[in-house]
């Protein structure tokens, strides 16, 4: 029943697997980025696949699963640290059915499946977000935070607010699928 969300057909590139990537998004180091399929990268998003671990060969820097949404103006940047005197970037892995709200900055290490991150959030370096967790709009998650499964975090610094309902997985799955099907091109 929800109305379609229209986008200009000229702005988006649709891949064989149904990913829709805005031409107005900045995809740095695309060879190091994996999109699972039916994932939407919105206008103005910046994905830093170029910030890879030093060393030879190919490396996956950022991977996103299926039915994900990287909102408008989001920055996705792999986390880094100095370990035993060596500065390095570490990969960022994101599961299926993950929505990231507009203008969020994400430096997480892992984000599970069925996760919803609100708009204007900052997800600090090496944060681990487990399945079905949610981060409310405008939340600041400090580096190295762990967000357990089915937890709602909010505030600055982001803290546990409540346990989410048992049906969160089904809800998020249908919402993310619906969003993808509502995301329709407008010829022009």
């Amino acid at each position: 029943m929800d109305a379609p969300v229209y986008y200009s057909k000229a702005e988006f590139i649709e891949t064989d697997t149904g990913n829709k990537v805005s031409r107005r998004a900045t995809i740095a180091g695309p060879q190091n980025i994996i999109l699972g399929g039916k994932t939407i990268i919105s206008s103005g998003a910046i994905i830093r696949g170029d910030l890879r671990r030093t060393g030879p060969g190919h490396a996956v820097v950022i991977s996103l699963g299926r039915y994900c949404l990287v909102g408008e103006g989001c920055v996705m940047r792999p986390p880094y640290k100095t370990y035993r005197g060596n500065f390095n970037y570490y990969p960022m892995k994101i599961g299926d059915y993950v929505h990231i709200g507009a203008n969020a900055v994400v430096e997480a290490a892992t984000i599970g499946n069925h996760v919803v991150i609100g708009k204007n959030c900052v997800i600090g370096k090496f944060t681990i977000i487990k399945d079905c967790a949610q981060v409310a709009d405008n939340t600041i998650i400090p580096p190295n935070t762990v967000i357990p499964a089915l937890a709602l975090f909010a505030g600055s610094p982001g803290r546990f607010v409540e346990d989410l309902p048992e049906s969160t997985q089904e809800m998020v799955e249908s919402q993310t699928k619906q969003y993808y099907s509502r995301f329709q091109p407008l010829e022009r």
Partner: peptide, 14 residues
């Protein structure tokens, strides 16, 4: 209320 603003809403859930 629908139709007019559907296109410029970036995210449905919020």
């Amino acid at each position: 209320t629908q139709g007019a603003d559907a296109a410029r809403r970036p995210q449905a859930k919020a």
